[in-house]
Nucleic acid binder design. Structure first.
Length: 564
RNA sequence: GCGCCCGUAGCUCAGUGGACAGAGCAUCUGACUUCGGAUCAGAUGGUCGGGGGUUCGAAUCCCUCCGGGCGCGCCA
């Protein structure tokens, strides 16, 4: 059975519309008009409007040239007829108890007790899969994020992209897609050689080059240089490159460790060099050339990006024969699609928005569906300490590393902070405030609700009370029904998050559920030896609440403690 | 100059076509000698940056102005 009550209501509404047409109470609609009307079911902002609502009648008012209220009445009559006929034995009557028409044309629905009971029982019988969806069309999705070059440790400027990409990957997986997480970096370019040169300069107590790297990590690398490497570098054409490659591998391993500490794991680490070596760039450019979008000018090779609306054409190979970064991007697109991904997601910093058009244009020019290449631009975070902005630059060596941030703020709080904000809005992160307010942070509020339930369950087992096998009959009153209603929303929250590629809905849901639970706790005594039957029912409900909180937190990569 | 993103309560942010605009924090007032007070109940607080338009309906879509951020390389 479908876990999403919302989806089942939507199916019922669609069915009512169709049977109204079949029964002649509404005329058929031409296909083109019909396809413009999608059946949308949502949770009303106000509880007195019921558990679900649809605006379908208002959407149909124009094509039908009838008043929204009249159409709503027709649809409501259709649904109520079904509920009446099926009462006591079938699906619709088990799902909703009433259909109300409300001006200017809403249809409002109330969930049946049976639907809530079935949901709670289902959560307890299969807690792990609660909230996970089966996508209508499961896709293989590649999510590429962070992708910082290994020339220094990750700093707090990389934090948002790391969290957003990871959250997105988790949400897409929960929504039923197959997700691969990918980190892309340059292991051979000028930056790596600059890193090597900086290390060698420090080691020889010389001035670090103009475009070199400073920072204490460079000194540490210099101190750790293995003598044998120095020897072999001495005989190499370019010692800086040899040392740089050694250093960048060290740095990369450190980056991986930092990310693991954040709870961010990658499936694939891809290097720009491999795209060249394996011929992906060459083949992609040939593909573009065949399609007629490549030309030579001033000794360089260009992609005719303007054919797709870009404001200028873009260089693929420079006049010195060297490929640009964009060349690798092109090769990478074909390489990813060759691995049979259906959808590519790029998580980029907002400063890269100038390159979005050319990458999508190149994908289009090579014959790929541009809709399958999705680039998310993550707005900046202003890190602030005591009201003063913290400036960051790897080259100057002034920055706060990700590890330092975690030492101060904690992974759960940091994850919650980024998960609860949309990725397109620039935000302020005041480190001192984050520390000071840690006890007031909503993440602890949610975790506390989870731990409190764990405590109740411990108490119950000490008292010798166990969970009811089924909550049948246990949800007929408040506050039980209200808590069950809140719990039942998780699958819809997951679907909305995956759809919007945003996670704020999940943090908002978790907070609301915690609030509902805390109020329930106040009003309903769960462990009460004098009323064992009622206790057993409430224990089951509370256990389902705990599963829901834990699964929502897991979706965000946040721990769900049994004790705090 | 051109392009993209953003502007919602004192602060940090949700809400991006629906029914009286929300949360957390801050401020103020209250609460159970029973399951965890990291809790609960209530109050204060908003010209949704300004103006115009589209729509039965706009914080949400369009235009314009103001303010802020970021881009506009044969750098990455």
């Amino acid at each position: 059975m479908e876990d999403s009550l919302r989806e089942r209501v939507a199916e019922a509404v669609t069915g009512a519309w169709q049977s109204a047409i079949a029964g002649g109470s509404l005329p058929p609609l031409p296909d083109d008009e019909r396809s413009q009307v999608d059946v949308h079911v949502e949770r009303p902002a106000h509880p007195e409007h019921g558990d679900f609502a649809t605006n379908l009648a208002m959407k149909l008012a124009r094509p039908y040239r009838r008043s929204p209220m009249a159409i709503a009445q027709t649809l409501a009559a259709e649904l109520e007829g079904q509920i009446g006929r099926e009462a006591g034995r079938t699906q619709l009557a088990d799902l909703i108890t009433s259909v109300e028409v409300a001006p200017p044309g809403f249809l409002n629905f109330r969930l049946s007790e049976r639907a809530l009971e079935a949901t709670i029982d289902r959560i307890l019988s299969e807690p792990k899969s609660w909230g996970r969806r089966q996508a209508a069309i499961p896709q293989r999705v590649n999510v590429e994020f962070v992708s910082a070059n290994p020339t220094g440790p990750l700093h707090i400027g990389n934090a948002r992209g790391a969290f957003v990409g990871d959250l997105l990957a988790r949400v897409l997986a929960a929504a039923g897609h197959e997700v691969s997480r990918e980190y892309y970096f340059n292991d051979f370019g000028a930056q790596v050689s600059n890193l090597g040169a900086s290390i060698l300069a420090l080691r020889d107590a010389k001035e670090v080059p103009e475009d070199g790297y400073r920072g204490s990590y460079v000194a540490e690398l210099a101190a750790d240089l293995p003598p044998r490497l120095v020897e072999s570098a001495g005989t190499a054409d370019d010692p800086a490159v040899v040392v740089g490659q050694w250093a960048s591998e060290r740095v990369r391993a450190g980056i991986e460790a930092s990310l693991e500490r954040l709870g961010v794991h990658f499936d694939v680490w891809k290097t720009e060099g491999s795209l060249h070596r394996e011929g992906w760039v060459e083949r992609a450019v040939a593909k573009l050339r065949e399609a007629g979008y490549v030309y030579e000018r001033d000794g360089a090779t260009w992609f005719r990006s303007t054919d797709f609306g870009d404001d200028k054409d873009r260089v693929i190979y420079r006049s010195n024969g060297q490929p640009t970064y964009f060349a690798a991007d092109i090769g990478y697109i074909t390489e990813k699609f060759r691995r049979s991904f259906d959808h590519l997601v790029y998580v980029w910093g907002a400063d890269h928005h100038g390159t979005v058009a050319r990458v999508r244009n190149a994908a289009t020019a090579m014959g790929y569906d541009p809709a399958a290449v999705e680039i998310l631009l993550i707005a900046w975070v202003r890190f602030v300490r005591d009201g003063r902005e913290i400036s960051m630059s790897k080259r100057s060596g002034e920055f706060i590393t990700l590890d330092e941030l975690l030492d101060e703020v904690g992974v759960d709080a940091a994850r919650w902070f980024f998960a609860s904000r949309g990725h397109t809005t620039g935000i302020d992160f005041d480190i001192e405030l984050a520390k000071k307010q840690s006890n007031e942070n909503p993440v602890y509020y949610v975790q506390y609700a989870h731990a409190r339930i764990a405590s109740i369950l411990r108490k119950a087992s000490e008292t010798g009370l166990s969970l009811a096998d089924s909550v049948e009959g246990a949800l007929s009153d408040e506050p039980e029904a209200g808590l069950a209603r809140a719990v039942a929303r998780l699958p819809d929250v997951v679907e909305d998050a995956a759809e919007a590629k945003e996670t704020q809905g999940i943090t908002a849901f978790a907070t609301e559920l915690a609030t509902t639970f805390h109020a329930f706790y106040r009003d309903a005594r769960v462990v009460d030896p004098d009323e064992p039957d009622r206790s057993r029912g409430r224990l089951a409900l509370v256990a389902a609440t705990q599963v829901t909180l834990a699964n929502a937190l897991a979706l965000l990569g946040i721990s769900a403690p049994e004790l705090m």
